[in-house]
Design a protein around this nucleic acid. Structure first.
Length: 278
DNA sequence: TATCCACCTGA
DNA sequence: CAGGTGGAT
């Protein structure tokens, strides 16, 4: 059994089921999912993460990167005085913001538009089962997330069968744009938040919310701040922001208020609101 | 620039 | 009605 020593607390349930990733599931005390598009099972026992993957992928360094284990949350929140942030941090200790694969993340959040977590997960899973490659760990079967060139060979009608609905043409056209050169999104790691945001907004089905999700959940832009329905409620109900304020203004207000790690704070507030508040 | 609404689908 | 976007006004 492979093991990684864990220094900070990790809460796998809150981390993997807080709406930032959609393909993890729990079975027999193990969490099954994908890191860099490779099937893996993990669990935490006595300050160690135990894992089993297929043929050495993902490797230890990829897992550490995926869970952002080098980032010290305590340090980030020690500079925060806001009471809601501190409450969410206290209640959700061990929640991590993941570094997912940007391509899968981009398509997943395009699919997430005006939907709900169970349906998003089902749709993505159907897509992978139909178009991805099979991977096996023990008795469990997994499927990789299909590449842009594979999705590009399909048409809107086929994608609708997977339950994508009107998002089908967004997924198809975004895939087509990236099928020639997927590097366009991996190059965003090197770009600033604003530059990367503007590149993402060019893709069909990607607005300010989806782009900011991709930036915070896969491209390590901690300043990114997705304003969805729940975060909007938080800003209006808890921070007294005018409900009528346009979405982008709300986002900028929050980034200014919360600072460099606004996106990380956002995820704590978001998950806390969903879990404990109405 | 700011508001309005169609767009798939399943609970 | 649900974790938006794009197009029109």
């Amino acid at each position: 059994m492979n093991k990684i020593k864990i220094n900070e607390d990790i809460d796998l349930r809150n981390t993997l089921f807080s709406g930032q990733a959609f393909r993890w599931y729990l079975k027999d005390d193990w969490y099954y999912g994908y890191i860099n598009n490779s099937f893996i099972k993990i669990r935490i026992i006595d300050k160690h993460m135990e894992y089993e993957s297929c043929m050495g992928k993902p490797c230890e360094s990829e897992i550490i990167e995926y869970f952002n284990l080098k980032l010290t949350y305590k340090k980030i929140f020690s500079k925060i005085e806001d009471k809601y942030c501190l409450l969410a941090y206290k209640e959700l200790n061990g929640l991590k913001i993941l570094n997912q694969d940007p391509w899968e993340c981009l398509i997943s959040f395009i699919i997430s538009a005006w939907s709900n977590v169970p349906k998003i997960s089902k749709t993505i899973n159907d897509l992978c089962v139909e178009l991805g490659d099979k991977q096996v760990i023990g008795d469990e079967i997994g499927y990789t997330f299909p590449s842009p060139s594979i999705i590009s060979t399909k048409n809107e009608k086929i994608l609708r069968k997977f339950g994508l609905g009107y998002r089908s043409k967004y997924v198809l056209n975004t895939s087509r744009l990236l099928s020639e050169n997927l590097n366009i999104i991996y190059e965003l790691f090197e770009k600033t938040y604003d530059e990367a945001l503007n590149v993402l907004l060019e893709f069909p089905g990607v607005g300010d919310k989806v782009a900011n999700c991709v930036l915070i959940y896969s491209l390590k832009k901690h300043f990114a701040f997705p304003v969805d329905l729940w975060v909007d409620r938080i800003l209006v109900q808890d921070y007294g922001i005018d409900k009528k304020m346009p979405l982008i203004k709300k986002r900028k207000w929050a980034q200014n208020y919360f600072g460099d790690h606004a996106g990380i704070i956002q995820h704590f507030l978001f998950h806390y609101k969903r879990k404990y508040n109405q």
